[in-house]
Amino acid sequence: MLTWSIDPFGVDANVMEPIHKAIGIVPLGDLSPLIPKIVAAHIESYLHLDADILPAEDLPAVAYSRRRLQYDAGKMIAFLESRPSTGHEKKIALLAVDLFVPIFSHVFGESRQGGAWALTSVFRLQRQKNGSIPAPETLYERTAKVALHEIGHLFCLVHCDDPLCLMHFSGGLSDLDRTPLQFCRYCAQYLREAKF
């Protein structure tokens, strides 16, 4: 969905950048093509926002840590935000590599409060704690939960105390699996008011 932002003070709208009131989904590196479609479907049904799947891009090498053999989520977001905007105000990058932030051993996803880019990695979501491979629907549900949680942060939502809310912090897979695919009524209301 493409809309134009109208300046109430009469500036010519044609000279303004077009703003997509939709979430841009960018696959980074090798990723099953089904994952972006699943995330898009969840954004549309849970956030009531349009989602555009954008062309895949390479993983930014600058974010790779040779010492930890993982990608630094903070550096990756900084890199993505440093590039010229493609028109979508809020975007989520989906990837299949392991992400970390310096203090944590790993993260499932990362974003900044009110930022433009969020990340979601399926790397640790596609394995059970015992190393076995989960049923595909489990992976899809986990990915959707992490993606919706990170997009929540892009709209300035903070972690929620309610363990039955998607904005509740999940430190591990069991926490994530316990969290239902829904926002509590407070976070849902906040999202309704905060959208774009």
Partner: peptide
């Protein structure tokens, strides 16, 4: 550090 996210929680 680095610690698991749920450890900090």
């Amino acid at each position: 550090k680095p610690f698991k996210p749920d450890h900090l929680t």
